[in-house]
Design a protein around this nucleic acid. Structure first.
Lengths: 332, 332
DNA sequence: CACGTCACTGTAATGCATTACAGTAAAGCA
DNA sequence: TGCTTTACTGTAATGCATTACAGTGACGTG
């Protein structure tokens, strides 16, 4: 692999001149510029980003670490975030923590050693001293969807509370009285928020969720299946269940199918997170949709802003939106 | 951010010794090792991977560029590939080309400048001089699912031909005579292969696909919808349609739904690529499943093998598998 | 004509970690 | 005792690109 020195020799100039031509910094005569460009093309010289970044102390790279790459929420978010990064001249690299704190930690360490300019994090756990540490050290960080104890980095998220309130009203209006929930971990900010919103709304409307209608999962597919199985196999099953994320909804629907319980007729189901397939199911699934792409764009913009030295703006949460379809019963 | 020099001063030793402690290279007395470790922890020193890689000429990083991150096939594959990379002490970074050759090219250039040790590519197009160039220059590359003109890098893929043959037999056995296909681009290796397999099998069994029952898409959701709409709106619609990938199947099903055409009853549908939601549809969708995770593992293993100097082994294709459900009609 | 200015180009220091080479002291051996 | 190992540690070169600083010649101005 050729170096800038090779290019300089091939063009008969100094390395400084080659650098000036390539980065458009400082004046270069037209004839020299052409010679250099020809030489660079000739020998196929590609600057070594390691050396450059070592010198300039910036890599033009953002790391995005998501908790679960199999969750379409994150791939959509990643795609939107990446668009912003590219438009601003940055490269984004994506890491997957698989909801495992150690994997997350490993990625963070690795990306930091590679000197990324900033980090977009969707923390796997709320108690994350490694995240607190890097934020305190001054690494530009923006959190997505989940906060971390003691960390003051900006948080990009969608507030689901109003939509969950509407959902509860919708369920009750359709005659459901025994509301159930398959919640995510209450240790996670988003898990807790959805849980509390559902419980509070059900109480407010006069049909509080009963303890035996509450199940907890870990936001993964399998836990959704197990939770639904538990709920429906008990003596007194709920008649409408709210599942707190898309991955668990997939599992929950699989469980219902294997149990022979019909969605909509035997039990109402609604999901936090929408999915293109929900419309294709029979009945189509009522869901709360997050503004996924906007979250991604907002997160990346906020991070780039911080990197460029902008203030630590507190971010307004976006809003999730209830999409009524037919899985809680017929509306008319 | 502290450097190895800071750590050396804090520990009262030379930078060489710090390096030796951290990398476990060369002998160090127990007392010094402790002192260094304490100092490193104390000042929170993290080695600068840029400097290290510049010196050692290796980054321990693999780039994986997929053509479309919204396709679950690739996220699953990525996850499996990443597992292998981590187990072997490498980091994987994921880029998304969005089926756009320029984006792909940009990513490749960028990753190469960052001096990744190797590249896993799912080329967006078959005519890709930029890929040929880097392979010729000796960059370790393994191709996934699609080959590139004139490039001799190993190719990891699943052969779908036998499964497609079985699918055609299955369709015909259920009484379908007017077989249709929504194919991917024939310019792409995988697109062409699935197309040819379906056409050949239908001819072999005595019910060759008619020209008006052939539509082409670009492996993206929208094109699947458009193609299905075209096929079904013509005067003489097919009575069973094979859709050549999962994303197009999603679009095709949406089109049928909006057209009010019932899957299974009015028209048979089968998909290349399986999806967890297919089992939940009514009727459940017959599909050809690729060994996605294995493809990912195999691709990463092959690449790491090359990087470590292994030969350019020609890789046997894996095999896709037909999963008969009920979307082409009832079997009994 | 003398001097300042400008355009262009080169020299060399710099960023940080690795590592070849060399040096020192202690231990082993004849 | 004298010499070779061995264990440990340090010095300095190295990888590659950027950039502060300096140098050269041409040009403009009073």
């Amino acid at each position: 692999m050729s170096t800038i020195k090779d290019a300089a020799i091939a063009a008969g100039v100094s390395t400084a001149t080659v650098s000036r031509v390539l980065n458009n910094t400082g004046p270069v005569s037209e004839s020299v510029r052409e010679r250099v460009e020809r030489a660079v093309a000739e020998i196929g010289y590609r600057p070594n980003a390691l050396a450059r970044s070592l010198r300039t102390e910036s890599t033009g790279t953002i790391g995005l670490i998501v908790s679960n790459i199999l969750n379409p929420f994150f791939t959509e978010l990643a795609r939107a975030a990446e668009d912003v990064a590219i438009a601003e001249g940055f490269t984004m690299i994506l890491g997957n923590a698989d909801e495992i704190a150690e994997k997350e930690e490993r990625y963070i360490r690795e990306l930091l050693e590679k000197r990324v300019d900033g980090l977009l994090l969707n923390p796997a756990v709320a108690k994350a001293p490694h995240i607190k540490e890097i934020v305190d050290r001054g690494v530009p960080v923006v959190l997505i969807d989940r906060s971390v104890e003691g960390v003051t980095a900006p948080l990009v998220r969608a507030d689901g509370t109003p939509a969950i309130g509407e959902l509860v009203a919708h369920m009750v209006a359709l005659g459901h009285r025994k509301l159930g929930i398959i919640s995510g971990p209450r240790e996670l900010r988003n898990g807790l928020e959805r849980y509390e919103a559902f419980i509070a709304a059900s109480s407010a409307i006069g049909y509080p969720v009963q303890p035996q209608h509450i199940a907890f999962g870990d936001f993964e597919r399998e836990s959704g299946a197990a939770a639904m199985r538990r709920l429906m196999s008990a003596g007194d099953p709920p008649d409408a269940v709210f599942v707190a994320n898309g991955r668990m909804t997939l599992g929950a629907l699989e469980a219902l199918k294997s149990l022979g319980i019909r969605v909509g007729q035997d039990v109402g189901v609604a999901s936090y997170d929408d999915d293109p397939f929900f419309s294709l199911l029979d009945p189509a699934l009522t869901a709360i949709e997050q503004p996924t792409a906007e979250l991604g764009r907002l997160a990346m913009s906020a991070l780039l802003g911080r990197i460029r030295g902008g203030g630590a703006d507190e971010l307004e949460p976006l809003h999730s939106r209830l999409i009524i379809r037919r899985s809680c019963g017929e509306t008319e």
